[in-house]
Design a binder for these strands. Structure first.
Lengths: 168, 168
DNA sequence: GGACATGATGTTATAGGTTCACAAGCCTGT
DNA sequence: ACAGGCTTGTGAACCTATAACATCATGTCC
C-alpha cells in the first residue's frame, strides 16, 4: 500500500485512493440536494469536485482560475454563489483563518465542526469531538451566551508531518 | 448605577465607565512594551486607543478613516503595521470571522483566547476557559496534532441582548 | 556632537477577497 | 406557449491586506 503519492504536483504523505473521496462526496451531495429539493447543477457539481481535489482548503480565486482554464469566462460571483449554495447545503465549510473552503466529509448529519489545519502540508482535517463540543457549550453557558455558529480552527502540525520531520 | 448608556450614538446595555477600560488598556500597553523593550509610539497608542473605544471588534479601514479624520493622510500600511505590532505584543487580537480587531483585556499573561461574539450588539467578550482549553488540547492530542495557534470564535447572542429581547 | 545602524512611518501601487446590481437564460408547472 | 422563479453571466465596485521603496526619527558608539 502506498504511503506517499503525487497529487497535483505535490507529494502527499500517507495517501489513499482519493478518487473514492471525490466520488463519495459527489454522491452524498446528490443525495443531500435531492433530500432538500435543491438543484445540484453542473456548475455546483464542478465546483464541489474541484474543492474535493484534495484535502486542502481551496481559495475562491483558485476555483475561478480553474473554471477559466476549463474554458469560458468565469467571474467572481459565479464562484461565490456556488460556494454560498454549497455552504447552505452543508456540503462545504469556510475556513475563516485561511479565507478558503473545504468539503465537508459528512454533510447531512447535523454537526458542529472543528478543524485541524496543518501549516506544513496544508491538509485540513475536520473532527467532531463531543468532549470539545460540550466544553464549548459549557463556556458559553457560563457566560449566559447563546451560540448560533462557531468557528474553531486549530493551526499546527499534523501527525504525518511530525513523523516526516523526525524521519528527515 | 447605570445599566444603559449611550456610547458613540449606540445604546449599550449594562454599561460601565468605559474610560477606565481605555485607561487600563493603555497603561497595560505601556507596561508590556517597556517590559519587551519595544516602542509604544504615538501612532500605536492612538490606534490602540481607537480599538478600545468600545468592546466591539474594529475594522482596519475604520481605523484608517478615523486617522484620516484626525487630519493627515493615512494609508493602509500605516494601520496594518500598527496592528501587526499590537498583535505581536499581545495587545490586540484579530477576529478572523469578522476581519476585525479587538483589544486584549489581559495582555502579558500567556493565554489562549476564546471569543464570544454577539451578533446583535456586536460586543466581543474574550474568555479563557481552562476546561475549554483542555478539551481543545485533548481533541488535538487524539489526532496526534501539535497545535501552534488557535482560532475559537463563538457567534450568537450575549446574555444582555437575550435579556433585552425578553423585555421587549 | 557627529556618523551610523536600526526601527518607524510615509507613499504609491497592487494583490487578494467579496458583494452589488442588472441582464439573460433555463427549468417547471399550467 | 406562457408566467414565475431559480440560476448564471457580466461589469463594476467595495473591502481587506501586502509589496516595495523612500524618508524620517531614535538611540548608540566613538
Amino acid at each position: 500500500m502506498a504511503t506517499r503519492s503525487n497529487f497535483q504536483g505535490k507529494t502527499v504523505a500517507h495517501s489513499h485512493d482519493h478518487s473514492i473521496c471525490i466520488d463519495d462526496a459527489l454522491a452524498e451531495a446528490e443525495r443531500v440536494c435531492a433530500e432538500h429539493g435543491s438543484r445540484f447543477t453542473d456548475l455546483r457539481r464542478r465546483i464541489l469536485k474541484m474543492i474535493w481535489q484534495g484535502h486542502k482548503a481551496v481559495k475562491a480565486y483558485d476555483l475561478l482560475d480553474q473554471l477559466a482554464t476549463e474554458g469560458g469566462s468565469a467571474k467572481p460571483p459565479t464562484v461565490y454563489r456556488a460556494l454560498d449554495f454549497l455552504m447552505e447545503e452543508g456540503l462545504v465549510h469556510k475556513i475563516e483563518s485561511l479565507n478558503a473552503y473545504i468539503g465537508c466529509p459528512h454533510p447531512g448529519d447535523d454537526h458542529v465542526s472543528q478543524f485541524l489545519i496543518c501549516d506544513k502540508c496544508e491538509n485540513v482535517r475536520e473532527v467532531t469531538s463531543d468532549a470539545l463540543g460540550a466544553a464549548v457549550m459549557g463556556a458559553a453557558t457560563d457566560a449566559g451566551f447563546k451560540i448560533r455558529r462557531q468557528t474553531l480552527e486549530l493551526h499546527g502540525v499534523c501527525a504525518d508531518c511530525q513523523k516526516d520531520a523526525r524521519a528527515a
